[in-house]
Structures are given as C-alpha cells and as structure tokens.
Design a binder for these strands. Structure first.
Length: 270
DNA sequence: ATGTCCACCTGCTGGC
DNA sequence: TGCCAGCAGGTGGACA
C-alpha cells in the first residue's frame, strides 16, 4: 500500500480525527515493529494535543503541543484503522482522542516503524538526514535530477527508488513513471538526455498527483475500519499487468532484479 | 563510493 | 478440499 500518495491520503484522512485534539491514550500492544517502539511514547504522547499532521516522503508526522513529533512509517502492510469495531491481532498501536475516537496502527508484516523526536530536531532524524527532495516540491526538476544522476551507471529504476535521490517513490510509481516517460528501467541513469529527464520529472509529478487524487476519492473506504482501499490500481498502465497489452499493443513484460518486480514495455520504453 | 542482494514478517493467491 | 510455492507497496545493512 504505502508509497508517497498512500501516505499523503492517510495523513489527510487522519487530520480531521486528530488535529487540535487531545490524546487521552497512546498505548502499544507489542514491543516493536521493525524497531522497538520508543520507551517513552505513552508518557510523552498521552495528554498531549495534536497541533498538526504532515508528511515527509513516506513518513507521516504527528506534531504535539509538547514540542514532540511522532513519526510513523507504514512499511509494506501498514494502515491506520479508524474506530474499529474490535481490536485485531495486528493493531499494534492504539490512540484515543478526547472526543472519543479510537485509531489503531495495523501492520501485519511489521515492516513499519514509529519514532518520537523533538520537533525542533526533525531534520536530524536519521532517515531524513540524507533524504532527497520531495518529488512534488519545487526542489525537484530536470536540472536537479541531471546533477544527481551524473556519472551514475546504475539503472534509472534503482536510482529513482533511492530515497537520497528523490524521496517518496516506490516500486509501483517508479514503474509507472518510467513507462509514462518512455524510459527503459535498465537504462544507465547517467546516460539519459536532458529532454528525457524533463519528461521523467513531469511523469513522476503526474503519476503521483493522479494517485493522490484517486486516493482522496476513496477516503470513505479508508475510514471504514475493515475496508480495503481502492487506490490507484485501476489506473496502472504496466504495474501488475504482465502479459497484458500495453497501449501500443505489445505485451507488458516483467523482470526481476534483486527480488523486485519491474513491469515495462520493451517497445515504448528505450 | 557504488552497485547489488538479502533479511526482516505475515497473508493471500494460484497451481497442482 | 488442501497444500505449498511464490509473491507483495520498504528499508537498511552486508557484501564485492
């Protein structure tokens, strides 16, 4: 589920439940996800009032009036459940608000994480320290990308998944953006002509923006505790479509590199 | 430094 | 019907 658009729509869905609200309970139901939960999470969050929610790359940020920010990452299988009828085996973090709403962070595979840092020191949070620009932000353009990729021999797909180059893309949207831009995923990143980088930046922006809009349109699903999100999946051009016809008529191909699938069209992408 | 691979987990699906 | 291999949206550490 969670690349940048999914985290963005998650934050948008949490905001009306949390912003301005006092937290009456913050409790973990096991010791760890990918890492241990912060030992003082309950103490520092319980009784605090949420002042704002935001997103950096694939991380969701919940700031409080105590100068703390709780940072969550959804890993591969994480999602927030709103007012679930009952708690399930994978509801690892429980949050309750003064108006009586209950939210749980549910993550079966436990690749996600929860950390707590001082808001003033957010930039020093290790995952953020070397992180590249937001792909939807002003700092991400063809000139930046050309400089970041100069001399790099690795495949463009691997470079776009590297959060130090650009922060927030994952396997789905990289496949989609490369297809939209007509660039082969195996192309050496440092050998892509400038006009094609311009097209790539535009494709990345376009696919992310469209996915956020689609995610936003399924927020009622999001708010249904046991509901599945509809997401952007119906709009995928190549991802998950091995063997189906690309818009050009050629079959969508799948290749596997270091255990990860890449979907692409050998005709459209060079 | 750069590029590549794998482990970390559970659940679901498709083929036999 | 049941079993099991294969696969899944991420990250970081280990390796050459």
């Amino acid at each position: 589920m969670p690349e940048l658009p999914e985290v963005e729509t998650t934050v948008q869905g949490l905001r009306p439940m949390l912003e301005g609200q006092r937290l009456t309970l913050v409790e973990t139901r096991r010791a760890d996800l990918r890492r241990p939960f912060p030992a003082d999470l309950r103490q520092r969050m319980t009784g605090a009032t949420v002042t704002g929610l935001s997103r950096r790359a694939k991380y969701g940020l919940i700031a409080t009036d105590r100068g703390d920010t709780m940072i969550f990452h959804l890993g591969m299988s994480g999602r927030w459940r709103l007012d679930p009828e009952s708690l399930g085996a994978h509801d690892h973090l429980l949050v309750e608000t003064a108006p009586g709403h209950r939210l749980t962070l549910n993550d079966p595979r436990r690749f996600g994480s929860v950390d707590l840092v001082e808001t003033a020191a957010l930039a020093a949070y290790p995952p953020f320290a070397a992180m590249g620009p937001e792909p939807l932000g002003a700092g991400f353009d063809a000139a930046y990308l050309a400089a970041a990729l100069a001399g790099r021999a690795a495949p463009i797909k691997a470079m776009l998944l590297d959060q130090r180059i650009v922060a927030g893309l994952g396997n789905i949207y990289v496949c989609e953006a490369l297809h939209m831009a007509g660039i082969a995923p195996t192309r050496a990143a440092g050998r892509i002509a400038r006009p094609r980088l311009v097209a790539l930046v535009a494709a990345i922006r376009e696919v992310l923006a469209a996915a956020i809009v689609a995610g936003g349109s399924t927020l009622r699903d999001y708010a249904r505790p046991d509901g599945e999100l509809g997401y952007f999946s119906k709009q995928w051009r190549v991802y998950g479509r091995e063997g189906e016809a690309c818009a050009c008529g050629a079959p969508v191909l799948r290749r596997v590199d270091s255990g990860r699938s890449t979907f692409h069209c050998a005709v459209c992408q060079r």
